[in-house]
Design a protein around this nucleic acid. Sequence first.
DNA 1: TAGTGGTCTAGACCACAAG
DNA 2: TTGTGGTCTAGACCACTAA
Lengths: 241, 241
Amino acid sequence: MINKNSPIPIYYQLEEKIKGQIEQGELQTGDMLPSEREYADHYAISRMTVRQAISKLVNDGYVYRKKGTGTFVAEKKIEQPLQGLTSFTEDMKARGMTASNRLIHFKTIPASTYVAHSLNIPVDSPVYEIQRIRLADGVPMALETNFLSATLVQGLSEEVVQSSLYDFIENKLNKKIGHATQIIESSIVNETEMELLEVKKDSPVLLIERKTSLEDGTPLELVKSSYRADRYRFIINMERN
Amino acid sequence: MINKNSPIPIYYQLEEKIKGQIEQGELQTGDMLPSEREYADHYAISRMTVRQAISKLVNDGYVYRKKGTGTFVAEKKIEQPLQGLTSFTEDMKARGMTASNRLIHFKTIPASTYVAHSLNIPVDSPVYEIQRIRLADGVPMALETNFLSATLVQGLSEEVVQSSLYDFIENKLNKKIGHATQIIESSIVNETEMELLEVKKDSPVLLIERKTSLEDGTPLELVKSSYRADRYRFIINMERN
DNA sequence: TAGTGGTCTAGACCACAAG
DNA sequence: TTGTGGTCTAGACCACTAA
């Protein structure tokens, strides 16, 4: 079951194996896992390698350790939330819906003070502004506006925007996305949103402003979205310290 | 600087030391850290111990590793978000405000179907229901209702509720909080909220439903809150996969 | 080629939990 | 007392990066 000659790291093989056993029900909630020494003996690997595998599972909330007692399968989390950073497309897919776009505009503009500050670039330097209606199963779900530095993200086109922006950044530009900070607030639709989102006057919306950064902390993207409150709820999972 | 005879683990001492250097500016954004081997030599500890310290820092987003190159200080995150799970009191403190409560009611009720399902207990089993107005600097910020199983959390009283619920659970009952799942939506105030939150008719509110679980996954608490949209924004940080 | 992080080993001693 | 996870050592080889 564990291939020591595989280029896939042993700890990762073991991690996936245990995760699979939990998902398949072979290991049930509350069950004690074999001890680290048992895993080590059984697969003829070092205990430190076993610990590396289990540590990942602890981090992801699949299992928890009890000092002096053992390692146990944790209860499953209720609704699967956004696992870290997801694009709108991935988010909708996870909710069982199909995402599509309606491009409102794609242009290059000089950075406003706020955008420049957010992206940590000079005021008036070129910025891509992309505005789209995001649809789920054909129904308007959100109005989204993205701002990206045209200096950092070169070669962006309407075609790329219509497919996957994150794919382009991660695979074509070879930049690794690190983390995002999101500010979520509640509001009432304005005139533009009312028309584009096809809702009544004074309907509530969820405003989400996301600032995404690369692994080294360089600001990559500023996104402002207005989600229809009647069709969208934001779900997140927060782990203990 | 590193005390090998201290009961405090070496990896933790090193982790705190490096974190301090980053916060004090001795190590600046983009700076390369000494290599793992240098740390090991310098403090006469094993490289694996150094890795353990640095891994924590990578997880927390302080530094990032570049294969074959080195470890670097990441850019600081913009606004400090809720670091994992925080209580209302801690949250307000982080925002530079003082929190206070106005207890609406504290009672024991039979669990409704929804509450029973959320807390994974039988319908009609006893549940504490606590409703409070949460104030920041004396101004109403949110209306919050908590539901806790009276079987799991025994001995809860009005006094405890007035001070710190989490302190009571973690230190008196000795139960470790694990994670929480939150559902965030946008809405318009109802009559009750309008009066208690002292806002006008049709004002927007941020609805947050939080389900908190213990380390082993046992549901601990269900909280439903309505935050005034004009005074509260929810800020979160999401890390890469 | 030299240096870095990524992975792995085969031990060791400790504190803690449970019988 | 036995078994568990928590910490730590002193090596090793690998793939990758940069000079």
